[in-house]
């Protein structure tokens, strides 16, 4: 942290960081020394140590595994710990703003409780009985799809970038957001699960609000193909259940529970 002032080759990072809370605020400029390999989060820490000890920022692992340090860097939703400073032009002023979809607590920290409330509404895993020999048999090809969803680090960048709630606050009560479509998909495609969440998806979770414009997929730091692999497959299952009389008639083409 503080030793950044000693090392380095004289290069500097010019940052424009949002300071303030729900009552108001402004972008403030800071300049700190730049070391090789630094990421935006390192620079924020330098600002904390050298200029603004109370600069509020959320972070934990600094290795892209915990999903705490979400922010908007030059207007793009990103993990600060995975945004390297050398991806910007030398001398460029880099803007760091808090994520815009959730209420601001202070500086770069927002109140993400929306997500934790949505998580509580999801019908939990409900496994079928064990095999006759007392084991659980699942095969790799059956769980590959779901393991992709389990990579989610809950950084909520997909929730942040989703225009359904980002630009239309009034939709928040009726829309769960991409993170939770991924979660529901992981349960619906789980080879052991027996519950049915399609009605939930269509109604409470508001799957129909998604217009598949794919920003969630674009910002996902885990490169989960949120739209193609979870949202659209869920939309298709909802179609089978609610909008496709022929498929319902045939039955055979539907999901496990129809």
């Amino acid at each position: 942290m503080a030793e950044a002032a000693v090392a380095g080759n004289g290069a500097e990072a010019k940052m424009r960081v949002w300071r303030g809370d729900a009552s108001g605020g402004e972008f403030r400029d800071y300049t700190v020394p730049l070391e090789e390999g630094m990421v935006v989060l390192d620079v924020i820490h330098s600002i904390q140590a050298m200029h603004a000890g109370d600069l509020a920022v959320r972070w934990n692992c600094k290795a892209g595994k915990c999903g705490s340090c979400s922010a908007e860097v030059n207007g793009k939703p990103r993990l600060m710990c995975m945004t390297r400073m050398n991806t910007f032009e030398p001398g460029e002023t880099i803007t760091v703003a808090p994520i815009q979809t959730f209420p601001l607590v202070r500086d770069l920290v927002t109140d993400v409780s929306y997500n934790y409330e949505k998580a509580k509404t999801i019908p939990p895993f409900k496994p079928k009985p064990k095999e006759a020999d007392g084991t659980r048999r699942m095969y790799q090809e059956d769980i590959d799809r779901v393991q992709e969803f389990h990579k989610c680090i809950e950084c909520y960048l997909c929730q942040d970038v989703c225009h359904v709630i980002r630009d239309h606050n009034e939709n928040k009560p009726s829309f769960a957001g991409p993170r939770f479509f991924v979660r529901v998909a992981s349960l619906e495609m789980h080879p052991l699960d027996t519950d049915d969440r399609l009605e939930f998806l269509r109604n409470e979770a508001g799957l129909g609000f998604c217009n598949i414009t794919k920003c969630c997929t674009e910002v996902c730091p885990e490169h989960i193909k949120i739209t193609d692999n979870s949202i659209i497959p869920m939309k298709e299952r909802v179609v089978t259940r609610f909008y496709d009389p022929i498929a319902r008639l045939l039955g055979a083409l539907g999901g496990k529970k129809s």
Binding site: D21, A52, G53, D54, L55, A56, V57, V105, R106, D107
Partner: peptide, 9 residues
């Protein structure tokens, strides 16, 4: 420095 609201320092 600063107040009690989310103050990492």
């Amino acid at each position: 420095e600063g107040g009690r609201r989310f103050n990492p320092g």
